[in-house]
Design a protein around this nucleic acid. Structure first.
Lengths: 256, 256
DNA sequence: AATAGTCATTGATCTAGCTCAATCTTTTTG
DNA sequence: CAAAAAGATTGAGCTAGATCAATGACTATT
């Protein structure tokens, strides 16, 4: 985690991609701020060498020093239950900010771990806060990003609150699809960087249920599953499942 | 909703309680800012006449103009599912801020409705944002409040994600108890301003299940239920239930 | 005070999804 | 490359909680 340049073959200079030239700046912190202000943001952001699979970005209990933006790869966040079981809170894709939930009391209450090789921009929070004090657009964007996360948490609470396993999984797949395409990747064909176990844990289901659902969805022609690779074949159908709340007219009957 | 003073017998002047003298300022927006800055905050905050039970604070689809802080009473927020059913997102107690999730795209995605007679401070968002630009403590407190909400949303996701009905309801009761005592009310005896239906909806359970659980909890000596009035008799026991994740050692056996 | 309407409780049954168990596949390690 | 470990799938049965149904209690209206 140290910043000693000599300890690596990797050209750290090459990692110093500016926000300006980053394909994610329309989603990320720099959104809506002027080019010269973006330069100031760049001066506080640290680009570190990539994390490998299972590397920790931070641990539960760590003091909050920085926020982190995913540049490529993916991260899962989780906390441990009373009995020491992992409980997954979220999966974070490129352009998404981590650590916002730690601002409140200055400490992380969950751990963040790379699901695959992942590069990260580190943004020291104190610096960011001072900069936000000077750049109205940055303050606004920070409010917007936090608000967006509140919104998506609320959406997920709705999904968990009432929905059947079918609704949960279809919502999950749609969410991934949407987020991938917003980030310039294919929304119809993508890799799941997390295990079936992680998915089940996140959705509050048993692994077996998730596995069965994948087969069912595939048999119904909604998706094509090949190990970690998912191809969405019928987004419309998935959407119907995702919104299904009818008790009487059982839409899921097509899947039997 | 208009501000015409002559249309009411209520002394609107009397409603103009300053943040300074408000018992909630340690929890609410003014926390951590200096007295003279608090005065500036006071100048932008509008105190309106109280909402009555079932009055709307805002509707889903409304443009975000203000954030709202609950001064007394309680508010529920909910959105409508595809099939037009109400899905409750949260219950908001005195000192809590509403509308933060609307900053992202400037519009409310849920409706907010009073559960009982409720007074509200209205804080025009644009004014608040400008003020936060000038008062670092205010910017920081806004970040903190949003972060706190993220944290509690995450906690609730954990509860919904895996937990049994017993765990869900005990978590709910503990959350209310904690929040009431933080606000200077009794944490061991309080009124539920929401219906059993609302509770069930919020927790993703059937009304009947909630009702049965109340009786079970009462029989186990954990709580005393009298209609809307709840008395916590054994907080320790509730806490155990709330954290229960053991599959083998079934703690809930005591309740049968 | 009577009536209608809403809200809450209790009982009986049914089912979605969990648990347990076995097999198969992929990844890791020596 | 083989062995071991981890992850994924599939099957069979069980259970927590949903649904359906009926009754009881409180609230509001006239």
């Amino acid at each position: 985690m140290s910043e000693t340049p000599e300890s690596k073959v990797i050209d750290l200079k090459g990692l110093q991609i500016a926000c300006q030239s980053c394909g994610l700046h329309e989603l990320c912190l720099p959104m809506g701020i002027h080019p010269d202000e973006m330069d100031r943001l760049d001066t506080i952001i640290k680009r570190r060498r990539p994390l490998h699979r299972n590397d920790f970005l931070y641990h539960s209990g760590d003091t909050l020093t920085s926020l982190y933006a995913v540049r490529s790869g993916s991260i899962k966040t989780y906390s441990l239950t009373g009995e020491g079981e992992e409980q997954i809170i979220g999966f974070h894709l490129p352009g998404e900010l981590l650590g916002l939930d730690a601002i409140h009391d200055g400490g992380h209450h969950c751990s963040a771990r790379a699901l695959e090789t992942t590069s990260i921009c580190e943004i020291p929070f104190e610096d960011l806060e001072s900069l936000a004090q000077e750049i109205p657009g940055l303050q606004h964007q920070l409010f917007r990003l936090m608000s967006k996360e509140l919104q998506s948490d609320e959406h997920f609470m709705l999904v968990l609150g009432k929905k059947t396993s079918e609704e949960r999984l279809s919502n999950f797949l749609i969410s991934l699809s949407t987020r991938f395409s917003q980030r310039g990747f294919s929304g119809t064909e993508f890799n799941l960087s997390m295990s079936r176990n992680d998915i089940a844990n996140y959705l509050g289901l048993a692994v077996e249920t998730v596995s069965r659902l994948f087969t069912r969805f595939q048999n119904a022609g909604l998706i094509q599953v090949n190990r970690k690779l998912i191809a969405i074949k019928n987004l419309e159908g998935l959407n119907e499942l995702a919104g299904a709340k009818c008790k009487k007219v059982d839409k899921s009957i097509v899947l039997r």
